[in-house]
């Protein structure tokens, strides 16, 4: 079994800094994430960005859930390094850097280093696992879809039948609790929006134990355009 992918947890965001891990996530695990890093040497950065890769909480939770990744708490790791810093060499380096005497070039690809690490326990992702968002994410991911954030289209996720670089998305996805209410206006609006951009609006919910044969139920809404 390959070494787990390191996900850095920084200020509430899940980030991946290792280019090989990014490739592996995309190719083997159908998780594309979003590149959010700006490259200092490249002036046009509006379309393609660089490392790090930002993962949605659901993506990070799924990877940890399947034992593919572990989450590093960068804040705690930082404190750990400083506390083990017997001869104050790390602190000296930081002071020197802050005073502007030394300049660093941000590396485009970071190398994993031998350093003290504080891993977040698996229980830290437990609250995510219970959300309807995560359940619909897991359901569609299990069917081979790539998912990306759906904010642009007013939904939770966009579902792509393959790599988002090769395909348009097919569904605007919204995960709901099994008996959760939603406004009828949202049904009409989202259905209209989905059909307008050649997608279908999909809602899904985890079936309570024993209520139906399948354990996840999903529906699509499209505007038929009568008349």
């Amino acid at each position: 079994m390959p070494a787990p992918v390191d996900i850095s947890y920084v200020d509430g965001e899940y980030l991946v800094f290792d280019i090989d891990a990014v490739k592996a996530l995309r190719n083997e695990h159908h998780i594309s994430g979003i590149l959010v890093g700006t490259l200092p040497q490249v002036p046009q950065q509006s379309v393609f960005l660089g490392l790090p890769l930002q993962l949605m909480p659901e993506e990070a939770a799924l990877l940890v859930h399947f034992g593919v990744a572990r989450v590093l708490d960068e804040q705690a790791s930082h404190d750990l390094i400083l506390s083990e810093d017997g001869d104050d060499s790390a602190k000296d380096r930081i002071t020197a850097a802050e005073s502007g005497l030394q300049t660093f070039v941000t590396p485009a690809v970071t190398q994993p280093s031998d350093r003290a690490e504080a891993t977040l326990p698996e229980s830290s992702i437990a609250p995510i696992l219970d959300t309807p968002r995560f359940q619909v994410y897991k359901y569609l991911h299990g069917k081979g879809f790539f998912l990306s954030p759906g904010l642009r289209f007013g939904s939770q996720f966009l579902a792509y039948p393959g790599d988002p670089l090769r395909y348009h998305s097919h569904y605007l996805v919204r995960g709901l609790a099994w008996d959760e209410d939603f406004a009828l206006l949202d049904l009409i609006g989202s259905g209209r929006l989905g059909t307008g951009v050649k997608k279908a609006w999909m809602i899904g919910g985890r079936v309570p134990a024993g209520a139906r044969r399948e354990d996840y139920a999903s529906f699509c809404v499209e505007w038929a355009g009568f008349g």
Binding site: L151, R152, F153, G154, S155, Q156, D186, R192, L193, G196
Partner: peptide
């Protein structure tokens, strides 16, 4: 949710 505002505004703006 922000997604709601974004969605409604996209329909109406569209």
């Amino acid at each position: 949710e922000w997604a709601w505002v974004s969605g409604v505004n996209r329909i109406v703006g569209g």
